[in-house]
Nucleic acid binder design. Structure first.
Lengths: 150, 150
DNA sequence: CTGCGGGTTGAGACACAGTCTCGTCACGGG
DNA sequence: CCCGTGACGAGACTGTGTCTCAACCCGCAG
């Protein structure tokens, strides 16, 4: 998923220093191909003997999340995972087999949210939509028997 | 939210025994008025000296979730909470002030999911939509300054 | 009513995620 | 080059959820 430098530049622009651990984490994150957990990063950093502590991983992820460079998603299993992504508001489809994700824009959701707000009387400030299924590649590899969507 | 007996009956029908701890938990859950966490139940059970162990709370919640009598939602804070609810597929709006929830049906979401599936090529098997905001009661009590939705 | 079998239980150990503290370090402006 | 301050790693700490295990009790059969 592109260039680790983008992350560092964005961090720098937000007033964060450009340090060795953050550089290492930027590399690891851009190398990830689907979603990843904080534990994944900690393990990866440990495996490559980068000497990056747990605390730093969490701190960096928190900063990146606030900058919108990374989004936290909640897997069906209850785990918290992260996805590197664009800065605009959007949602994700997560492949439950290979873990890859695709970003999707509004796709008509705004109207749905609006309607719900009107029906329930709530003022909706925030929403989260997460989709899980099989990506095209995994679908091709594994010609599922009954491909009846939910 | 109604009758604790409904929970017990549903459990019994699914082959679970009707035991004192489960009765106590059914009472506690139906007494809850918004969402609640596992820790809430553990604390409540402890406070009333019901002698219900942590393990039993988690086991019961797991069973209820599988039966669809309770749904697990992920709060923006990252906490896992539960909501007592109907058995059909649906979604929730959660009041971020008082914690109360309302159930909502499809509301046009199916079309959105369909469109996303077509655009991305994914086969979408599962989806989760969660909305957060202020319920009518909290809106009235607290005449928010700028009520501009997201 | 009584006895029995197996599902159920509570306590506590355990595994893990995430937070916090603190002394040290190094980035980068001056 | 120097200094102030943000960032660092290690590890203690908190909280959540899981697992084990011996004792228990629910519900059925007799």
């Amino acid at each position: 998923m592109g260039d680790p430098t983008a992350i560092l530049v964005a961090l720098e622009r937000a007033g964060f220093r450009r340090t060795a651990p953050r550089r290492a984490l930027a590399d690891l994150i851009t190398a990830q191909d689907g979603h990843f957990t904080a534990a994944d990063l900690v393990a990866a950093a440990g495996a490559e003997r980068l000497g990056v502590g747990r605390a730093t991983v969490f701190r960096t992820l928190e900063a990146l999340e606030q900058l919108g460079l990374v989004e936290r998603i909640d897997l069906p299993s209850g785990e918290h995972a992260y996805v590197a992504c664009e800065r605009s508001h959007h949602h994700h489809v997560v492949c439950s087999r290979c873990g890859r994700t695709s970003e999707i824009d509004d796709a008509g959701l705004k109207a749905v949210v609006h309607q719900i707000a009107r029906r329930t009387g709530y003022r909706v400030d925030e929403h989260r939509l997460e989709l899980f299924g099989l990506c095209p590649a995994c679908l091709a590899e594994q010609p599922g028997p009954a491909s009846v969507p939910a």
